[in-house]
Design a protein around this nucleic acid. Structure first.
Length: 643
RNA sequence: GCCGGGAUAGCACAGUGGUAGUGCAGCUGAUUCGUAAUCAGCAGGUCGAGGGUUCGAAUCCCUUUCCCGGCUCCA
């Protein structure tokens, strides 16, 4: 065990055996003092603190760092251990339950159990109490190893069939077990030194989950929970979850009268109410304007097409489960469209194209219908009928990179306009099953990568995650709560040009096949709208607000003057509403605030006399304007800047 | 699709076999008020839909539609 160095809060401590360095017990003591949860090797693997001597024996010459709960890995270890404690508590209370797996997740942990009687919310608090007791006892987590055969025997004897199945699938001679207060679980580890290392946790909800995520397997009962370094952080997380609830677009959609979904119309089908429709109209106007500026041509295409089109496009082969059953029209089968691409190709094919025409960029707000399983529908975020902000760029291979560069700029500009400043970018490369030539894949993937690098955009590569027809770039925006949403996608396509045999005449006087780039910036208007509602918590910036200004009177004396004022604003293109009733001004302001109208113009005798305007911002701040033209200039400036 | 929970007035909810309720919103009247809820009165329901059990069903049973939480995180 020569040369083992453990970094403890910046101090390098050498682990020695006889004479040199510090003894293992001594180091463990030191580690416990700083509440270290695990040790991390130079290459990033994690180990138990109690395992320190074994580490030393097996891993000479390696450097380790103490990991505490303040590091992401430490928090993950803590959550994983909490899931074990939960399983322990569940087994204590319900001995017949079989345990399966219980990993840590991005913001907590879960454990899946096989039980005939699902857990209720009352069960959760009982389990929590049992967990508190286990934590209080500070049982040490003890790591053991045994041969696969012995482990199988052990878990078979315990009746833990799932563990047996897991062990049998493990590709190693030995497996590790963790024991804590008599509860033994198969686990790779590492774990916190003792149960008292868990300081703040909460069980959150129960859910059904298939064994190994496969719907052919048995449905298990999952319990979700989370754990944090301190009660304070746990409290903050719970407040965050409440904030998420407050911003729920389905709730705000009803409160602000933006959209609705009806049983008798159908699941996953959206009605846009006047307020929502106004926002959509504003988004669409912006979208069209910017596309024209960026050199796109706008298209409209029908909602249905003959089934042969979908056979030719290949959708019937690879997209069938998302398509509705065809309808018979005069003896021919028609399909409702799940995508817009075949129509855009038909427009491309409607004339002979020269290399000089390329790139040709067609854009359409195309409404498509896709079958989604009933259980996955979710407000505006997962629907069955939606409008894609779709575009197809037909270009030569040598144009791919510059087109991608343009699309990236365009995408980020559009996302920024909607207040999305932060995003993560992913480059997905060739999967195992693919169409097109290897050289084309290489050219296209390089083009995407070069474009990202030229822009200096940080990205992650997802190897093999591309679509079968070409590589792609996905952009996932982060909203104001730092939640990630995928909206934008840029995909190269070798498949459709070939299937539809599209061509252009090149300078060599021969026919060549163009490459297609599919791209969507917002993805689907419905989904994007849902994300926007949550991002802004319903308080849209002025340019998007369905009602921009409310005109409120102090008493009914000012009604006529208020009407005049509102009329001037309306004629100037401001979306305005009035509240001239006999309620008190406090009530009217409350109503205006609840509707999240950006500005309220308050009109009393004073304003009427001086012809000045008092304006209350949504946040309570007061502004005053000498006359209505000053207010108009102010509003116009804010609308144009799209702040 | 599957597991669990749910559907009661426009909205949020209470009501476990015996005459359907509360708050907000709505309507009417009073009030005319200066920065987030003035007061009073009135009206509003095939208790998601269909079937069954019962003297009697919002309530119990079956079917069905829709909604909600999940179903990638691999010991």
């Amino acid at each position: 065990m020569e040369g083992i160095v453990i970094n403890i809060e910046g101090e390098a401590v050498e682990l020695g055996s006889q004479g040199s360095g510090r003894g293992a017990d001594d180091i463990v003591k030191k580690l416990k003092k700083i509440s270290a949860l695990a040790l991390k090797s130079a290459e990033g693997s994690l180990f138990d603190i109690s395992h320190i001597t074994e580490i030393a024996e097996n891993r000479d010459g390696t450097e380790f760092t103490a990991v505490t709960i303040d590091q992401p890995e430490g928090l993950a270890v803590c959550r994983h251990s909490t899931s074990h404690i939960m399983a322990h508590a569940v087994k204590d209370i319900y001995p017949g339950v079989k345990v399966t797996i219980g990993p840590s997740t991005e913001d907590g942990f879960y454990y899946d159990f096989d039980t005939d009687t699902p857990f209720t919310p009352d069960d959760l608090s009982a389990i929590e109490k049992a967990m508190q007791k286990i934590i209080k006892r500070n049982n040490p987590f003890v790591r053991k190893t045994m041969s696969k055969a012995d482990a199988v025997k052990l878990f078979k004897a315990m009746g833990e069939d799932y563990k047996v199945e897991i062990i049998e699938a493990i590709d190693a001679g030995e497996v590790s077990l963790y024991e804590e207060g008599g509860f033994i679980d198969l686990c790779r580890g590492p774990h916190v030194p003792g149960t008292a290392s868990i300081r703040a946790f909460k069980l959150l909800k129960t859910a059904g989950a298939y064994w190994r995520g496969d719907e052919k397997n048995k449905m298990l009962q999952r319990i979700y929970g989370t754990a944090f370094a301190t009660q304070e952080e746990l409290k903050r997380h719970i407040e965050f979850l409440e904030e998420v609830k407050r911003r729920d677009h389905r709730r705000l959609g009803r409160e602000l009268d933006l959209f609705s979904i009806h049983d008798d119309i159908g699941a996953g089908l959206i009605l846009w109410h006047p307020n929502g429709a106004m926002i959509r109209k504003t988004i669409e106007d912006f979208w069209r304007e910017e596309h024209l500026k960026a050199g796109y041509k706008l298209l409209f295409s029908p909602h249905i097409a003959k089934i042969d089109l979908w056979k030719k496009s290949g959708h019937l082969d690879f997209y069938k489960e998302n398509m509705y059953t065809p309808m018979d029209i005069d003896g021919a089968d028609y399909e409702i469209k799940p995508m817009n691409c075949p129509f855009h190709i038909a427009v491309y094919k409607s004339a002979l194209r020269s290399y000089r025409d390329l790139p040709i960029k067609y854009a359409e707000l195309g409404t498509v219908y896709r079958y989604e399983r009933s259980g996955v529908l979710h407000g505006l975020l997962r629907v069955r009928g939606f409008t894609q902000d779709d575009a197809h760029i037909f270009c030569r291979v040598d144009q791919i990179e510059s087109e991608i560069l343009d699309v990236l700029d365009f995408t980020l500009y559009v996302l920024r306009t909607f207040g999305f400043e932060k995003y993560d970018v992913y480059l997905s490369t060739r999967p195992d099953k693919y169409v097109g030539t290897l050289s084309n894949w290489e050219i296209a993937t390089d083009a995407l990568r070069n474009a990202l690098e030229k822009k200096g955009i940080k990205y992650e590569t997802d190897p093999g995650e591309g679509v079968f027809y070409g590589p792609k770039i996905d952009i996932k925006v982060k909203d104001s709560l730092n939640r990630q949403w995928q909206c934008s996608t840029i995909q190269v396509d070798f498949n459709l040009p070939e299937r539809f045999d599209i061509a252009y005449r090149a300078s060599d006087d021969k026919e060549h096949m163009p490459i297609m780039i599919h791209r969507a910036l917002m993805g689907s208007l419905e989904r994007f709208f849902g994300i926007l509602i949550e991002h802004y918590a319903g308080a849209f910036p002025l340019w998007l607000s369905p009602v921009q200004v409310s005109v409120l009177t102090i008493s009914e004396r000012q009604a006529d003057y208020a009407k005049e004022t509102a009329d001037i604003l309306m004629k100037a293109g401001i979306r305005v509403e009035t509240d001239l009733g006999d309620e008190k001004i406090g009530y009217k302001i409350r109503q205006s605030s609840l509707k999240k109208i950006p500005y309220a113009v308050l009109i009393g005798d004073k304003e009427m006399e001086l012809r000045s305007l008092t304006v209350r911002k949504r946040n309570g701040e007061n502004l005053s304007f000498a006359d209505i033209n000053n207010l108009l200039d102010f509003l116009r400036e804010e609308i144009e800047s799209r702040r």
